[in-house]
Design a protein around this nucleic acid. Structure first.
Lengths: 135, 135
DNA sequence: TTTGTTTTTGCAACATACTTGCAAATATAC
DNA sequence: GTATATTTGCAAGTATGTTGCAAAAACAAA
């Protein structure tokens, strides 16, 4: 059984053609991808199916969301053991101002912060903008 | 001359009715506001005028952007000396998972990060999710 | 305080991102 | 192979953001 089917089965998700194709695409991409990217690449799939599949993958901890300033949500495959109970891969993301690609910086954990009295932190997002290795 | 007019004049922006109302609203709000919030509150203003005004205020360093996981851009008044040449108020933002409001945590600077070889950071966004003081 | 110039606004139309309901199709378990 | 529950595709709708252009408003200077 291939990797994608194992990932789906482990989350009790049916191995449908759409899911296998979308997951394969996500795994093959070193950068975070937007819905539009999936749609362009897998053009035979319905837009709504792609939205729903990404949403399902999020819930099941297969992928995580990265929000940048463009308004379009991007997604990347989780590197560690995430599941329906939560995401456990709090790492920094890097967005290149030249190529505009977002990548996970898995080697760097998000540093903790001393918040003012009364604020209880749960999780966080840290996005660094700059010029990436490749550019 | 009122505060809002001084702010506009200092940036060489004409003191129009729309700008004065939108800026007053932004200043009166302790949380980050979305375009939709402005539209609901100042319902006599045209949608496009609000978009353009927020965009102008961004360029002139009057407000800054906060991106969260909802896809809708939010804005908050800059606390320090920002201008057309750039924003200089790199602070942490906090989004409450109960009331869903975003506020600036002006007292905490974004901690620096040691990026892998080859990455050149320029600026960053750090958003912490959790339960706020009020909730 | 009127006039001329430049900026801003409002409208129409468009573009992109995302959601919901429902019937038909498909995956899985038996 | 059949029953059942899940998933998909289509249609339609909502939310968010943009662009071009003519009319209106702000400002400066006579």
């Amino acid at each position: 059984m291939q990797e994608v089917q194992q990932i789906l089965k482990a989350r009790n998700l049916r191995s449908t053609q759409s899911r296998k194709e979308i997951l394969t695409y996500l795994l093959s991409n070193k950068y975070a991808v937007a819905h539009a990217d999936v749609e362009k690449t897998l053009s035979e799939l319905d837009r709504v199916t792609i939205y729903r599949t990404l949403s399902t993958f999020m819930e099941k901890g297969i992928i995580h969301q990265v929000s940048d300033d463009t308004g379009a949500t991007k997604y990347a495959v989780c590197s560690h053991q995430c599941d329906s109970l939560g995401h456990h891969d709090e790492h920094v993301h890097f967005k290149c101002v030249k190529c505009e690609q977002i990548q996970c910086i898995d080697t760097v954990e998000i540093p903790d912060i001393d918040l003012p009295e009364g604020f209880r932190p749960l999780y966080s997002n840290y996005l660094i903008y700059g010029v990436c290795k490749e550019c």
